[in-house]
Design a protein around this nucleic acid. Structure first.
Lengths: 168, 168
DNA sequence: CCAATATATCTCAGCGCTAAGGAATCTCCG
DNA sequence: CGGAGATTCCTTAGCGCTGAGATATATTGG
């Protein structure tokens, strides 16, 4: 039994010495979650970079791509999927439009709104990047066997539910 | 059995329709991880704000506090704990020093280095914020029972190990 | 039908971080 | 010892995001 000690074990141990009156066990979860998220981000970033993308651009292109023909959504829908502010979406779209990966046209039904559509280049790029991205994700998860993965996903679902991550 | 459908379920389903040739199951994990991390960050942010803190400042103060007397570390050590660049730490310390929460003094043994030390105000602030922060973390984890939490932590450990998160 | 309110998008200043690089100092080895 | 390379911290330009607010349009209640 190779009792690996990680960063969070050390942190918890330090708090135990300095503030024995507090129960810091929630850090065992939240601390590792935060750390893992950072490391995963760094890993994914490399894959994106190989396709001249960053997370923000990949996110928008992938959202449009998986929405199906005609690969067209409004900025508001993209904003909700991405969990960022409207300003962030405006700027992401500026960048993607400048690169010719999406187009913005006025909406026919609502003159406040616009239709963001994947161009052929955008479509080709996301379809090229996606398999590589999935391979990276699979590699990250490689040491987690099937039943443990299922339990992990179930726990993630629970926590997302607690935080009100409902899709309607 | 209330088969809750969440955002990631929808995403996976969309990909299944658009790219049935690809196995997008890794997204079940990574997608939820990323989403959860964002929601947790937003939740913690509120707690920090109640104490005139943000994550960056809390992180530095907490690292110094749990290191024990004399609550003193070098910028390099803080950088490693925080997983950010040296520039980020310099700027965090500028802000904390300006607020009188830490001091920077030359190191006695290495003239390239400095000693960052918690002031009384910094000590008092972090000891005040910490219980509130832990309460927020506990609330987030409230719907996860003990055995599932343990399994969740074990999986997090595995993934951190895969990504090379070793503490030496 | 109009006024009040809500919605959709964009603009922009400010923030914290990264990446790159500079200056001072330390360490190691020939 | 002395020079080469490593280490430590800092500076700064640039990046993407937020938060606040502006504009235009849509919707709703009286």
């Amino acid at each position: 039994m190779a009792e690996r000690v990680d960063h969070v074990d050390r942190i918890v141990q330090q708090w135990g010495a300095e503030r024995p009156d507090l129960d810091v066990s929630p850090m065992e979860v939240i601390g590792r979650l935060k750390r893992l998220s950072r490391l995963v981000d760094a890993e994914l970033k490399e894959t994106f970079a190989r396709h001249d993308l960053d997370f923000a651009s990949f996110d928008v292109l992938a959202t449009l791509r998986r929405s199906g023909p005609p690969y067209r959504l409004t900025p508001t829908m993209l904003m909700q999927c991405a969990m960022v502010t409207s300003g962030a979406i405006s700027q992401r779209l500026d960048r993607l439009e400048a690169r010719g990966l999406v187009t913005r046209t006025p909406s026919g039904s609502d003159r406040r709104s616009r239709e963001v559509e994947l161009t052929e280049e955008g479509y080709a790029l996301i379809d090229r990047a996606l398999p590589d991205h999935l391979a990276t994700e699979r590699r990250i998860l490689g040491d987690l066997d099937e039943p443990r993965t299922a339990a992990f996903v179930a726990a993630l679902r629970t926590l997302l539910g607690t935080l009100g991550d409902d899709p309607e």
